[in-house]
Simulated assay, not measured.
Amino acid sequence: MKSVDILVIGGGIAGVSAAARFARQAQTLLIERESALGYHSSGRSATFFHFGIGDDAVRGLTAASRSFFVDPPADHSDVPLSQAKPALFIATRETMGELEALEAEMRRFADTITRVGPDDMQAIVPVLKVGNDGAVAGILDVGGQKLDADLLLQANARALRRAGGEIRFGEGVAAIVHDGARWIVDTGVERYSAGIVVNAAGAWADELALLAGVRPLGLTPLRRTIIGFDPPSGLDISGWPFLKTVSDDGFYMLPDAGRLLASPMDVTPSPPCDVQPEDYEVALAAWRVEEATNLSVSRVPVKWAGLRSFVADKVPTAGFASDAPGFFWLAGQGGYGLQTSPAMALAAEALLFDQAWPDELRAYGVRPEQIRPERLTG
């Protein structure tokens, strides 16, 4: 049996970014059931940093993470983990109220936004339908960042190993019990003894808790679909922004490696699994792009789906379970796990080691009670 101080279960961005910080202070081991980091949700995201989703807690966590992506710590990376790219949020006449509410919320965290009209929007995205047939107003945020998910995962893995931590792949949890003093975790490959277990199992976090005899958080995994298609020949899309409707029954679209990626922003409940795209959502993504633009999506050579797991208030959760000693929650990152991961790692470190609340989080109004699990479980 291998004994460690902290055993992190789950190799998505939440687990690996927090483990990189934990390893500076304690012997830390991360185990992942799959053969690579970010196999499920983290590796299937459009990976864009913006303030167009979430509540004040999420936007505060996002704001507190920005400097990490632009100027990462030396032990993580010697190059930026993101590239500057604007974000454009659009509204029709029917959704102007939503645009105005979003603008007010975004302005509390970003001073890089401006209201734009039909002519400006069409100049930015020439294929966009504007006026009576489409968008009538938008919010342009020139502070957006296109994140590199793989680079971000590997940067945190590098920092974890440099601090003396370890990652083991191909090890899913078969059994987990508390012997009165420590957690005993059996993966079928190895048995571990840990003073603290960190549940960063993503869509499987509630299932892991039940296996451990811990009260679940009430996570809801939701399927999200993304398609990739080629733009018309000769059309330069490299300067296009991340484009998103303010309405949840719309779509988002962004250029990526010469193609356009788009999602219908579907939120279909799903059991934890290796989720695959459904034909309906693939067709819906193409249809919504065609409804809002002059593009024709005749072929979809690339498509995938991922799971976004939310708790009731849709705020990421970190902290010790009240009903199990040494069981630490790090779950419910929803659709903003990557863009909030540096701040959530800071929060998790402070809560796990009972340290002072980080100034970086306090500066953006993020409070510990907003993310602790007691708000959900009592």
Results as ranks from 00 to 15, higher is better:
331 A>H: 06
204 W>G: 00
236 D>Q: 12
86 P>E: 09
9 I>T: 02
95 T>F: 01
369 E>A: 14
99 L>V: 09
65 S>C: 11
346 L>M: 15
170 G>F: 07
236 D>K: 10
18 A>Q: 02
364 Y>F: 15
124 I>Q: 07
208 L>E: 04
209 A>Y: 01
247 S>L: 04
371 I>E: 01
76 H>M: 05
317 T>Q: 02
30 L>K: 01
326 G>W: 02
8 V>Q: 01
153 L>A: 09
17 S>M: 05
9 I>F: 00
370 Q>E: 14
163 A>K: 08
150 D>E: 13
273 C>I: 07
296 S>C: 05
373 P>L: 10
275 V>A: 12
137 A>N: 06
220 T>S: 14
56 D>P: 04
140 L>K: 06
242 F>E: 04
105 E>M: 06
293 T>Y: 00
111 D>T: 10
284 L>E: 15
161 R>Q: 13
149 A>F: 01
16 V>Q: 01
357 W>D: 11
232 P>A: 08
378 G>H: 07
365 G>T: 13
61 L>C: 10
203 A>M: 05
157 A>K: 09
215 R>A: 11
371 I>W: 02
237 I>M: 02
70 V>M: 12
203 A>G: 03
148 D>L: 10
259 R>K: 15
35 S>K: 10
137 A>Y: 01
189 V>N: 06
151 L>G: 15
225 T>E: 11
247 S>W: 02
256 D>L: 05
60 G>L: 06
38 G>I: 08
345 A>P: 04
171 E>L: 13
261 L>A: 07
272 P>G: 12
368 P>A: 09
232 P>Q: 08
364 Y>H: 15
281 E>K: 05
378 G>E: 13
240 W>N: 06
195 G>N: 09
291 E>H: 09
102 L>K: 10
156 N>Q: 11
371 I>H: 04
332 G>Y: 00
132 N>K: 14
246 V>T: 02
78 D>V: 11
367 R>N: 08
301 P>I: 06
27 Q>N: 10
312 A>F: 05
192 Y>D: 03
39 Y>S: 06
310 F>Y: 15
76 H>Y: 15
94 E>D: 14
224 R>C: 06
346 L>R: 13
369 E>P: 03
85 K>A: 15
355 Q>W: 07
347 A>T: 03
352 L>K: 10
268 T>S: 06
290 E>G: 04
105 E>G: 06
3 S>N: 06
299 R>W: 04
278 E>F: 12
340 T>I: 10
159 A>S: 14
101 A>V: 14
120 D>M: 09
96 M>E: 13
165 G>V: 00
357 W>Q: 10
195 G>V: 05
372 R>L: 11
142 V>N: 02
243 L>R: 07
190 E>D: 14
81 L>K: 06
202 G>D: 07
237 I>A: 08
272 P>S: 13
100 E>R: 15
209 A>E: 02
307 L>R: 00
102 L>T: 04
106 M>D: 01
144 G>N: 12
311 V>R: 06
189 V>R: 11
40 H>F: 08
